[in-house]
Write a protein that binds this DNA or RNA. Structure first.
Length: 932
RNA sequence: GCCCGAGUGGUGGAAUUGGUAGACACGCAGGACUUAAAAUCCUGUGGCCAUUGUGGCCGUGCGGGUUCAAGUCCCGCCUCGGGUACCA
């Protein structure tokens, strides 16, 4: 009987669903193990073969852990708020909730066919009000919290208010906005309610402030830094400009140090940790104040090289720096203003594109060097960014290349401060060498000089030691419809929290999903978008206006792993017992593109919830694995320019051609084009003519990102239809190591398909291929093959080497086939070994073997070394490191015995050619090497 | 520029601690079975040279080095992929 995968796979998928095989329960008798995939955004295009790669790997791991006796939690859900659904809604008028529902159903259908062990009873959707109620609740916790540097944790805001009443903000060491004023208890008491709220906004972890944002006019929305690529929006590629706007932000910078140090113990790849470290961008140095000649203003700069302060020959302010206006002298005013105007017009994209183009303007003002008292000319230049550090630099052209370039361009002096450094052609950025021309720092090596310089700066009270982070607070508001409403209303312009009993604050209905005519967010269109603290949401005209921006995509995904632990709880984001039992994720798998976005935010929220005492751990995932991207192999046809003629690849050099993507489904494994299918594909190819080589049209190849627009998408459904889900699972794993990027190649899928058939035949060696299994005791050879497989596959599973485990299955099945092995004692453990990769066929075989319960209830087979014991070892014999022949010898021989045996072999004598070996290296059970 | 990763047959890849390079597959070639095809099975398959056979030389991006022994370790380059960027 041939293996009928279609009915078998459907049967077991139904069985798993009906028997709730994968429903996780809090069971204290087994250790818990939480396996999580980064949940998908359900796009309209459905899954392509790249998506399941990670899901298959994590599924194998989850199934393995289950067989090893763990109580496994392996959930799945959808990150269902997002821009594509909204864009589609804008174009078609369809409510995003409707298209999202359709897309989710399609995803679910596709996922179900692959046979995953997900606990679907825990499915979540970030756009479900029952879910985002808690996203909003966490937002309010952040709104009602501040960060105490003394306690190094987040604390409820009411503690801060209590302190203000007693002592004002003197002695309060908090992470707060720049320029927060000092006040006493008396002053606090005299403030109006509004003034107090304004002050508190400087401390809240979710706060409203005017900030420079990436405004995208085409999308009518603000984008986060990591959503802007090369000055255009990541999605859609629309231009982005800088604009000041009142925005909700998250004070993630409060957690910069903990986000950095917390990385060390995590079992994440070094690459990802390094990315996060660079993103956080800690630098240590000093903040120094420079006075301004004939002016009361002080210019604060941050420098990592305070030792080079005697090398300062000018200062540069960002054109946006607030002091520029006050210090510019009358005669330079026109020039400076013109320069500022010019900078404003340039988008970030242009500024990026013109790195080599050095520009700036002199303000006419001079700073006073804090040590020498010398006048230092103050310039403005757009290479200094307003948003980083203090927006001003003390320029040390001898020690910083950008300063050097600027000095060189404007003919400013370049004084050297490092002994022996040559600064005539470029700056000397090395931290080696000793200081010179630097008064009290002369003769000191750089590292010591830095210390001494900072001490001197602090002594003279012209600055302080300072740690600076590149990490910026995260903009949290979006001018969009399809996101979580921010649960805030405005009373006299002061933001106030919506009462938790009124959560979820549900998205209102709107007539259109576009911004309003005056550029207000789509929520402004709602007719019911006001709030009364007594009644909840009320019609416009009553109560107070609600916030109209919505949360960004990363809000819902910043805590979703916690919701899976108790997905239907209506009283809390998750019950205490659930978070205490399941804790954080043991194994998290997803793409490395989320390294600095999602993975930083989810760590931030986790630390915050930990600080507030809601969860007993402060990292979301102990182990993180990044799966590689599956690339598509695009196929090209070559059209002769100006004609409708297509020339085969080998002949294209003879013509002037342009390459055009052809759908991969028209091209076979020999790169031959199905001409009829191609002609029928598009109207303009109907009359196409073809110049063939050898009677065939050969296409070109290129590895590119798998994408609809490149016509190289391979759909998993079709492969499952043709080859089976088990074959797809095995094949995707067999392609290579999980973390590597690799081009998709359907050809090899025949190999794993044959393997499944071969496996099936091991169990069906009876007449007419009927099922037959022997109860006889296994032979030594069978046991050896079995235990070799157990040992190798177990190690593969532990190392997540799912590609080599597939090879090892093949080796085992090939071996048992040639041994004609059909013994239960062999086939049962083999079936268990395979069941994580190919669960459908394994379940079927398991039940044929007479088991009444699912194979997931089985135990992973134990490896026993005694079956591997070798009597002989086949020694490779090398001469000067070159392997010449092998010699089987008893495994128990001593070094001397081995040498004697090898020396007496006639081949040894041949290679020695009468010479006496200088040295003989013998490593028992490894190698014999003669040095001649 | 900087940071991370990778480079092995025609292809995907294997070699876990320095110890027989190319496991396992795909593809290809030849053969068996078949009226034929599919399916299945068998044989061969890194390159070059030699050959009845035994064999010889070269070979893991390139150039050096360490070592009895290097795909693996060290130094210097090249190429590709990913990330990131006027970050003071």
């Amino acid at each position: 009987m041939e293996y009928d995968f279609k009915s078998t796979e459907a049967k077991w998928q139904k069985y798993w669903a009906e028997n709730k095989t994968f429903h996780a329960k809090q069971a204290e008798d087994r250790p818990k193990y939480y396996v999580l995939d980064m949940f998908p955004y359900p796009s309209g295009a459905g899954l392509h073969v790249g998506h399941p790669l990670g899901y298959i790997a994590s599924d194998i791991h989850a199934r393995y852990k289950r067989l090893k006796g763990f109580n496994v939690l392996h959930p799945m859900g959808y990150d269902s708020f997002g821009l594509p659904a909204e864009q589609y809604a804008i174009q078609t008028g369809q409510h995003p909730a409707v298209t999202t529902e359709v897309n989710i159903n399609r995803y679910r259908e596709q996922l179900d066919k692959i046979g995953f062990s997900f606990d679907w009873s825990r499915e979540i959707r970030t756009s479900d009000p029952a879910y985002y109620k808690w996203t909003q609740w966490i937002f309010l916790q952040l709104f009602d919290a501040w960060y105490s540097k003394d306690l190094n944790k987040a604390v409820p805001i009411k503690d801060l208010i209590d302190t203000f009443v007693i002592q004002g903000n003197k002695g309060v060491d908090a992470v707060c906005a720049e320029g927060t004023p000092q006040f006493s208890a008396e002053e606090w008491k005299e403030m109006s309610k509004n003034e107090r709220q304004d002050i508190l906004l400087n401390y809240r972890l979710a706060y409203l402030s005017e900030s420079e944002v990436n405004w995208c006019p085409a999308l009518g929305t603000v984008l986060a830094n990591d959503e802007v690529k090369d000055g255009v929006s990541e999605r859609g590629g629309h231009p982005v400009v800088q604009k000041k706007m009142m925005q909700w932000s998250m004070r993630i910078t409060a957690y910069a140090e903990r986000l950095l140090t917390g990385l060390d113990p995590l079992d994440w790849s070094d690459a990802i940790k390094e990315l996060q470290r660079n993103w956080i961008g800690k630098s240590e140095g000093a903040s120094v104040f420079f006075g301004v000649k004939d002016n009361d203003a002080k210019i604060e700069v941050f420098t990592t090289r305070p030792d080079t302060i005697f090398g300062v020959s000018f200062m540069v302010l960002a054109p946006e720096h607030k002091l520029v206006e006050t210090i510019t002298t009358a005669e330079h005013k026109a020039e400076v203003e013109a320069y500022i105007e010019r900078t404003k017009k340039r988008t970030e994209r242009e500024r990026l594109a013109e790195v080599k183009n050095i520009t700036g303007a002199f303000t006419g003002a001079y700073a006073i060097h804090p040590f020498t008292g010398a006048p230092v000319p103050i310039w403005i230049g757009d290479y200094v960014l307003a948003g980083y550090g203090t927006g001003a630099v003390m320029a040390v052209p001898s020690g910083d290349q950008r300063d050097w370039d600027f000095a060189n361009h404007f003919n400013l002096p370049i004084p050297n401060v490092i002994e022996g450094a040559d600064v005539s052609e470029s700056a000397s950025e090395s931290k080696e060498g000793k200081l010179c021309n630097s008064e009290f720092l002369n003769g000191l090596p750089v590292k010591e000089a830095i210390k001494k310089a900072i001490d001197a700066i602090e002594e003279r009270q012209i600055g302080t030691r300072k740690v600076n982070y590149k990490l910026r607070d995260a903009v949290f508001g979006r001018q969009r419809y399809w996101g979580e409403p921010i649960p805030i209303y405005y009373k006299n312009g002061i933001p106030k929290a919506v009462k938790t009993e009124h959560l979820p604050l549900e998205l209102p209905e709107v007539d259109k999903f576009l911004p309003t005519e005056d550029g207000e967010p789509p929520l402004q269109r709602a007719t019911t978008w006001n709030y009364d603290p007594e009644k909840g949401v009320v019609a416009n005209g009553e109560g107070f206006p609600l916030e109209t921006t919505t949360m960004p995509g990363w809000a819902g995904s910043s805590w979703y792993y916690l919701r899976y632990e108790d997905p239907n709880n209506t009283n809390a984001f998750a019950d205490e017992s659930a978070v205490n039992y399941w804790k954080n994720v043991d194994f998290y798998l997803g793409g490395s593109e989320h390294a600095t976005g999602h993975l930083l935010y989810v760590r931030f929220w986790t630390k915050f919830l930990f600080d507030m005492g809601y969860i007993p751990f402060d990292e979301p995932a102990q182990k993180l694995v990044n799966q590689g991207m599956i690339q598509g192999v695009s196929k090209f046809v070559y059209r002769v320019e100006g004609t409708n003629q297509f020339v085969s690849k080998g002949l294209r050099k003879e013509y002037k051609t342009s390459a055009i993507h052809a759908d991969v489904s028209f091209v076979n494994e020999h790169n031959e084009l199905d001409i009829d299918a191609f002609k029928a594909w598009r109207e303009d190819f109907k009359g196409a003519e073809f110049i063939l080589e050898g009677g065939k049209y050969i296409c070109g190849n290129e590895v590119e990102k798998m994408s609809k627009s490149k016509f190289n998408v391979v759909n998993p459904d079709e492969l499952i239809e043709q080859y089976s889900a088990d074959a797809l699972r095995l094949h995707e794993m067999f392609l290579g190591p999980i973390e590597m990027h690799k081009p998709w190649n359907t050809q090899g899928i025949d190999g794993v398909t044959k393997f499944i058939r071969k496996l099936w035949r091991l169990f069906h060696s009876g007449e007419n291929e009927s099922f037959v299994v022997s109860e006889e005791a296994p032979t030594k050879a069978e046991l050896k093959a079995l235990h070799t497989a157990i040992q190798k596959v177990t190690s593969d599973m532990e190392r997540l080497a799912f590609n080599t485990s597939v090879s090892n299955f093949m080796v085992a099945v090939n071996e048992f086939t040639s041994l004609k092995s059909n013994k239960r004692s062999i086939l049962e453990p083999l079936t268990i070994l395979l069941s994580c990769h190919a669960p459908h066929v394994a379940e079927e075989l398991w039940s044929l073997l007479g088991h009444e319960t699912s194979i997931v209830e089985a135990q992973w087979p134990e490896f026993d070394e005694k079956h591997l014991a070798e009597d002989e070892f086949n020694y490779p014999v090398s001469f000067n490191g070159k392997m010449r022949f092998t010699l089987p010898l008893s495994a128990g021989l001593s070094k001397d015995e081995i040498q004697d045996a090898v020396m007496s072999d006639e081949r040894t004598q041949k290679y020695l050619d009468g010479k006496t070996p200088k040295k003989v290296i013998i490593v028992p059970k490894k190698i014999v090497n003669f040095v001649v």
